[in-house]
């Protein structure tokens, strides 16, 4: 069981603590002790697939339709493939997925795994972006919110040039904003160069 989750984690985007969330939630939710090995394994694997979809979604800063298709297509393909495999009588997986999908407790467990796995990540990410932002966060926020960029502070002579560069950058970004605009590739680079 842990081998399966660990193996999957190495190939995906799930962090060790999230793998632990998947394992413990699966064990506790199915602790009514009537589950077979294949059932429990499939619940844990489903949890990994769900978590991966949400982790990749959260890590993506720019969505074009290929991203959306690939993230959720992977999710849908997982269920399609497993339902197909569950229809093959000679396999150990026969009818496992049909049974799981018809149980309310399966879907409730999936929701629990996603909430426990993603909640802390979302909270920490938001906190860091809001209260400890780095330059990339700020530039992304400027681009996406089109916020006011007025700078009124006095500057030391040694950093005036940096400030001027930034002012040019931001001014240009307002004039040349487009759907695919990349803030670090401003025209002002060419004009200054």
């Amino acid at each position: 069981m842990m081998f399966l989750i660990n193996q999957y984690r190495q190939n995906g985007k799930i962090k060790p603590n999230q793998a632990l969330v998947v394992f413990l939630t699966t064990i506790c939710a199915y602790s009514d002790e009537k589950s077979e090995i294949e059932e429990l394994s499939m619940v844990a694997l489903s949890g990994c697939i769900w978590l991966q979809a949400f982790v990749v979604t959260l890590d993506t800063n720019s969505f074009t339709y290929p991203q959306i298709i690939l993230i959720w297509g992977n999710f849908i393909a997982f269920y399609m493939i497993n339902l197909i495999v569950s229809a093959v009588p000679t396999l150990q997986m026969y009818t496992i997925m049909f049974r799981l999908c018809s149980q309310p407790s399966y879907w409730i467990t999936m929701g629990l795994i996603v909430a426990v796995g993603m909640g802390p990540v979302l909270a920490l990410r938001y906190f860091r972006n809001m209260f400890r932002p780095n330059a990339i966060n700020i530039l992304q926020q400027i681009e996406q919110s089109n916020g006011h960029t007025h700078t009124t502070r006095n500057m030391e002579s040694r950093i005036i040039s940096a400030g001027s560069y930034l002012t040019h950058l931001l001014a240009d970004s307002r004039r040349n904003r487009g759907a695919t605009y990349q803030p670090l590739l401003s025209d002002s680079v060419a004009s200054d160069g």
């Binding site: 919110s145 700078t151 930034l166």
Partner: peptide, 11 residues
């Protein structure tokens, strides 16, 4: 404030 450049280290 979101995107306030005064949070940048050199500002």
């Amino acid at each position: 404030t979101l995107g306030d450049p005064s949070y940048l280290s050199w500002n």
